[in-house]
């Protein structure tokens, strides 16, 4: 991080096709997910994804606060994405800003399309995402954490929601950008996939790509999401492994 102090663009892709941290173009950073680390929340998850560290907590369904947001036919999904002041090199000014509001909104909307909110009318499902350490791709890491936390909270939904960012850096379409690739690259394209149906429920883009590049990027992203999906499922299996032991008292 400190090594790119100068304004000059680092070499994002070596002649051998390796990226700044030695990954290939279609490789994810290492992901580790812990389901249920928080005791008070109805569901929680901690995601370590490359140098990202994100904690998510889910409360609900519970009474809606503020009341006027209540909906008579379904639960409202309220999401709050927040970056800790110490999550980035330069102190992040704490509190709401336009970026965190936007991310909260797109994540809430992504969950709106998979959670069976009609089962809990006039309630709220509150999702809190706290970024403790950031290194690009925190909205995806946050979404993944929140999704595992929702499953941990026993909330009914169509599927888990894996997410990943694809992008373009050093002229190549790459999977799962890290900070330098995000900052100095040509494009960033976070996405979230419903594996069961193949639908994308979050898709944003910054930068430029040709149509062909976009379609390559989408394919790569879907592949990436499916890899993330496996890690998410394993995290939940590990947490609830005891419950599935044979001979247990039902």
């Amino acid at each position: 991080m400190g090594s790119v102090g100068a304004k000059e663009v680092p070499v994002l892709l070596s002649p051998e096709g390796l990226r700044i941290d030695g990954r290939r173009v279609n490789e994810l950073r290492p992901i580790r997910i812990t389901a249920g680390p928080l005791k008070h929340a109805d569901g929680s998850a901690f995601v370590e994804w490359g140098q990202n560290k994100v904690m998510a907590a889910v409360y609900g369904p519970r009474e809606v606060h503020p009341r006027h947001l209540q909906q008579n036919t379904k639960a409202v999904i309220q999401c709050k994405y927040n970056m800790a002041a110490f999550s980035v090199d330069e102190r992040k000014r704490p509190g709401l800003d336009r970026r965190s509001q936007e991310i909260s909104k797109v994540i809430a909307e992504a969950f709106d399309s998979v959670v069976f909110a009609e089962e809990f009318p006039r309630t709220s499902i509150d999702v809190y995402i706290e970024v403790l350490q950031a290194n690009a791709g925190t909205r995806c890491a946050g979404l993944v954490a929140a999704s595992v936390a929702l499953a941990d909270a026993g909330i009914p939904m169509a599927d888990l929601l894996p997410a990943v960012a694809v992008g373009k850096a050093g002229g190549a379409i790459i999977l799962d950008l890290k900070k330098e690739e995000d900052n100095f690259g040509e494009a960033d394209l976070p996405m979230a996939l419903v594996p069961q149906s193949g639908r994308l429920v979050l898709l944003q883009m910054e930068g430029h790509m040709t149509r062909e590049e976009l379609s390559t990027a989408l394919d790569l992203g879907v592949q990436g999401c499916r890899q993330v999906y496996e890690v998410m499922k394993q995290a939940l299996r590990d947490r609830y492994a005891v419950a599935a032991e044979p001979g247990a008292v039902a």
Binding site: G43, F116, D152, A153, G154, I155, M157, A158
Partner: peptide, 29 residues
């Protein structure tokens, strides 16, 4: 159910109870 296939909507234990297939929750409110 979507398109003739049945999927779990919650995390839980699979418990077929004819004529239903259902999932018994392990967590949640």
């Amino acid at each position: 159910r979507v398109g003739g296939k049945v999927y779990a909507s919650i995390l839980g234990l699979l418990s077929p109870r004819p004529p239903f297939v259902q999932v018994v929750p392990l967590s949640g409110r």
